[in-house]
């Protein structure tokens, strides 16, 4: 359906996006994962034809949209990271405004507004002003506006930022339902690993303007097939213990948290004896040692040496 070829965007001398390639098949949910500043928003802004790339191409059904943005705009719904709504208007008035600018009128507009309010679960709040909504309700209406004109492709830019877990679950379920029931193709950007793992069939991992890995969840996790993620829980993290871990070449990507340390270790290594010995040497009391199946977070850590939310 959509192909992004060697896309590059420069702001003065800085490359925000550098040679990005990706594709979307009709009816799939694709995740674009990366930390803040990775270039996700710039990439989707270019796909949405809001900013022009310096080089590269974006093709919709094999036709370039850079010169003809109207081709993608007709089938595209965008959920921006910001709450792009009039705060002093009601939910209904907002939907009416955005429906009208998409040339919806009369009964069609009314019917579509009712459907959308039902989808986002705000039918009973339609007469309330947006500024009185909770963060989660605003986010849901933000999504609703993008669905008004029945788009085939929806781009969502971190649509769950700053909301409570309950609203997040509601939004994720709504996105999944839209994809399954209406066949809407979704490009979903986030820096929440668990959201992307839950929603997306395929994932692109972005960092510093580049796509550093891509594939299905399983394919990405296989990158770590040779390594385990070990979490060492301690009563107190001591500098000497951390230094011993770092000095041992077997332990990679040592991440220190408040009362735990996470490391990556080759699967064949007997981690327990090594850690116990180091703990004894540095006088640290171990609370637990956990061996985890790798997550996408671990994949990101493995690829970049940094945690996603650093």
């Amino acid at each position: 359906m959509l192909e992004v070829l060697d896309l590059t965007k420069r702001f003065k001398k800085n490359f925000a996006v550098n040679g990005v390639n990706l594709f979307l098949e009709q009816g799939e949910i694709v995740g674009l994962l990366g930390p803040n500043g990775a270039g996700k928003s710039t990439t989707i802004s270019m796909i949405a034809t809001l900013i022009e790339p310096n080089s590269g191409d974006i093709r919709l059904y094999n036709e370039s949209i850079i010169k003809h943005p109207e081709k993608i705009r007709a089938i595209l719904g965008v959920v921006p990271q910001e709450i792009a709504l009039y705060q002093d208007l009601t939910a209904e008035e907002n939907l009416e405004f955005f429906g009208r600018i998409y040339r919806l009128k009369g009964r069609d507009l009314k019917k579509r507004m009712d459907e959308v309010l039902e989808i986002i679960g705000l039918a009973d709040k339609r007469k309330e002003k947006v500024k009185k909504f909770s963060g989660g309700m605003k986010r849901r209406l933000n999504i609703g506006v993008a669905l008004l004109h029945n788009p085939q492709l929806v781009i969502m830019d971190e649509p769950t930022v700053g909301i409570d877990p309950q609203s997040r679950t509601y939004i994720l379920d709504t996105v999944k339902r839209l994809n399954q029931e209406k066949g809407i193709t979704v490009l979903y950007t986030s820096h929440y690993m668990e959201e992307v793992e839950y929603l997306c069939q395929r994932i692109y991992i972005m960092d510093k303007g580049h796509i550093i890995a891509s594939g299905t969840k399983e394919e990405l996790k296989n990158i770590l097939s040779q390594e385990n993620t070990i979490t060492i829980k301690l009563d107190q993290v001591r500098k000497q213990f951390v230094e011993l871990l770092k000095a041992d070449p077997v332990f990679r990507q040592v991440m220190v948290y408040d009362s735990s340390i996470q490391v990556m270790v080759p699967k064949e290594v007997n981690v327990f004896t090594r850690v116990l010995s180091m703990a004894e040497q540095s006088g640290v009391e171990l609370a637990a040692i956990e061996v985890k199946t790798p997550t996408l977070e671990d994949v990101f850590l493995h690829l970049t040496g940094r945690a996603l939310r650093d």
Partner: peptide, 14 residues
């Protein structure tokens, strides 16, 4: 522009 409403209008047939 700052709230993203302007971008939504750009993407519409307006």
């Amino acid at each position: 522009k700052q709230s993203g409403i302007w971008n939504r209008m750009i993407l519409s047939p307006l």
